[in-house]
Design a binder for these strands. Structure first.
Lengths: 119, 119
DNA sequence: TCCTTATATGAGCCATAACTAATATTAACG
DNA sequence: CGTTAATATTAGTTATGGCTCATATAAGGA
C-alpha cells in the first residue's frame, strides 16, 4: 500500500464539489450546463474541477456539435465506491456499531466477484 | 450519496501521514512509539493524527501498564479499502487501460459477499 | 466578420488543515 | 516527591488547494 498513491487518489475524489459533479454525470453523459444546473455549482468552478478530473482521466470529454462538451465517467463503477463510502461513513459516523456488520472485501475478492458477475 | 458525508470520510483517511499510521497499526495493535518507529513520522505528528482518528472512531486506544498506549483499528477491514484504492489508483494513474478490468462492486454485493464468506 | 452561447483558463485570494515547537499530562519507579 | 519515559495537547506557522473574478477560447449562425 503506497500512502502517496492512495492519498493522491482520495484527494482527487474527496472533495464535495467533485463528488457532486461525479454523481451528476452518473452512468450516462452530460454537458457542462447540465452539470451546472444539476449541482448548482458556478460555471467556472465546474469547469475548474472538470479540467482536473479530465487531466487525471476520471472523466472523458467529447464535443458533439455546437459549443457543447459532453462529459462521461471513464469508469462509472467508481460511483459504487462512492456509494459504499457513503453507506459506510454514514453508519460509521453514527453509532459506530452498525458499521461492524460490513467489512470491506479484499481487493482480490472484489476482482473475482465482478469477473464472475455474481448474482 | 451525500457528498458532504463522503468528503468528510475521504478527507479523514486521505492523508499520507494517516495512511502510514493506519497501515502501521494494521490488523494488530501498536503503541505510539512503535507507530513512530515504523512510520518515521515525528512523535507529535503521530499523536496529533491519532487524536483525530481516535475522536472519529477509526482507531481505539487502550492503556496496558506503564505510560504505554496501544492503538488498534476499530475496523481492520478498512485496510482492504486502502489496498483496493492503491491497486486501483496505481493502475489508474498509469496506462488508464488496465484499470478497466476492475470494477468497484455495488455496496449490496460487497455486503453479500462478506456475509457469505465467499471463497 | 460579428455576435451569441457554451465552456475553458489563469491569477489571485482565502479557507482549511497538516505540521512544528514548546510544553503539559500520564504512569510508574526509587 | 522527584525523575524518567511515553504520550497528549496547544498555539502558531506553513502548505495546499478550493474558489472567485476577469477574460479567453470554441463552435455555430446570420
Amino acid at each position: 500500500m503506497n500512502p502517496g498513491t492512495v492519498e493522491k487518489f482520495l484527494k482527487l475524489i474527496g472533495d464535495s464539489s467533485r463528488l457532486k459533479i461525479l454523481s451528476s454525470i452518473g452512468a450516462g453523459e452530460k454537458t457542462v450546463s447540465e452539470i451546472i444546473g444539476e449541482t448548482g455549482l458556478p460555471q467556472t468552478l465546474v469547469s475548474f474541477h472538470l479540467k482536473i478530473l479530465r487531466d487525471r482521466e476520471v472523466v472523458v470529454a467529447s464535443r458533439k456539435g455546437g459549443p457543447f462538451v459532453h462529459y462521461r465517467l471513464r469508469d462509472p463503477s467508481i460511483l459504487n465506491l462512492l456509494h459504499a463510502c457513503d453507506a459506510y461513513a454514514g453508519k460509521f459516523d453514527g453509532s459506530g456499531e452498525e458499521a461492524r456488520e460490513f467489512e470491506w472485501p479484499p481487493w482480490k475478492m472484489m476482482c473475482r466477484m465482478m469477473r464472475r458477475g455474481d448474482q
